[in-house]
């Protein structure tokens, strides 16, 4: 059964910075700017936070070929940090987010140093186990307040100028954070660094023989991904004024995998689409009696069995005339 050539996790398309992509991104941005006039800002902000989280995750799986099953540790861990420094230490929201991002990056460095030596399935299991350790810490450390979490986090005033208590101000701040994170990922993917990651993903031994210290590249990618996941988590804590255990569970790590898989691993826009769909679906399911995990699990199974390219991946694959598979 090892005979046939494998299709890899990365059927998706690495996009080139062609103008249609820019147009598409511009149109998306315009929609996002107008959206709060049609939809609940809180819902939209949730989508944006998860979209950034999924994009950060996708940077690893889609462009470096590493499946982290522990990203909830960065997302949820950073949420605790942001909530704590803002609420207890009274820091301004921008410093809360910086602290959240920095701590997540540090955690990413530690996780990365431990896990990067193993590949594939092992990498997934190690990151999963390490994130479970963070879960237990979050359960036990005093500052996280166990089952209650950190509640009533003040949103504060951004740069001393913008009152984040205003829904629209908060929304546009979240949108700006998302756009900045997305742009950074876009730049990274298309940079020489991104090309090396791609080479590692395609054929690591070859990249090694070309003289690249692949572990370093993977580690940097891991830290970057963890930091951005942390930024997303910190932002979410401000939006919902809450940091809780839910965001550090391994089911949350699974959820971000699903968003990325559903949208399309290795595509830039896929995780955004996937996050939007999953968040929408979950808020819809909350109003029905259907058990959410069962539905999510079924989508997972269907995606893995029948739909491994994901929505955006599938669209790009079917796009006529595009020679770049």
């Amino acid at each position: 059964m090892t005979m046939q050539t494998r299709d890899t996790l990365h059927e998706g398309i690495v996009m080139y910075g062609g103008s249609p992509k820019i147009l598409l991104a511009g149109a998306g941005l315009l929609l996002a700017v107008l959206a709060p006039y049609a939809l609940y800002p809180v819902f939209l902000m949730k989508v944006l936070c998860f979209a950034l989280f999924a994009c950060a995750f996708n940077l690893l799986i889609g462009f470096a070929g590493l499946l982290s099953f522990g990203h909830a540790a960065f997302f949820g861990g950073a949420a605790y940090i942001a909530a704590h420094v803002v609420k207890v230490w009274g820091w301004a929201p921008e410093f809360g987010l910086i602290a959240a991002t920095a701590v997540a990056g540090l955690m990413g460095l530690v996780f990365g140093l431990i896990a990067i030596r193993r590949q594939g399935i092992y990498f997934a299991m190690i990151t999963l186990a390490l994130s479970q350790m963070v879960f237990f810490l979050a359960l036990q450390l005093p500052f996280t307040h166990g089952e209650d979490g950190i509640q009533g986090v003040p949103r504060g005033t951004l740069f001393g100028l913008f009152d984040l208590g205003q829904p629209l101000t908060m929304y546009y701040t979240v949108l700006a954070i998302f756009v900045a994170g997305f742009a950074l990922i876009w730049r990274t993917v298309h940079s020489p660094f991104g090309q090396v990651l791609k080479a590692i993903r395609e054929n690591e031994p070859r990249a090694v023989s070309l003289g690249y210290r692949t572990d370093r590249y993977k580690l940097v990618a891991f830290v970057l991904s963890a930091s951005l996941a942390g930024l997303a988590g910190g932002t979410k804590a401000l939006v919902f004024q809450l940091a809780s255990l839910t965001d550090v569970t391994w089911q949350m790590s699974g959820e971000v995998v699903l968003m990325t898989l559903l949208g399309g691993m290795g595509t830039l826009f896929g995780p955004v689409v996937g996050a939007g769909l999953v968040v929408t679906l979950e808020s819809y399911l909350a109003s029905t009696s259907l058990p959410v995990p069962v539905v999510i699990g079924c989508i997972f199974v269907v995606c893995v069995l029948l739909f491994r390219r994901g929505i955006v991946g599938e669209l790009l694959h079917r796009l006529p005339g595009k020679g770049n598979r």
């Binding site: 594939g120 898989l261 699990g297 079924c298």
Partner: peptide
Amino acid sequence: KVDHLYGLLLTFG
């Protein structure tokens, strides 16, 4: 026949 990670994802689902 596909990447082993998919087995992990399926069983997670």
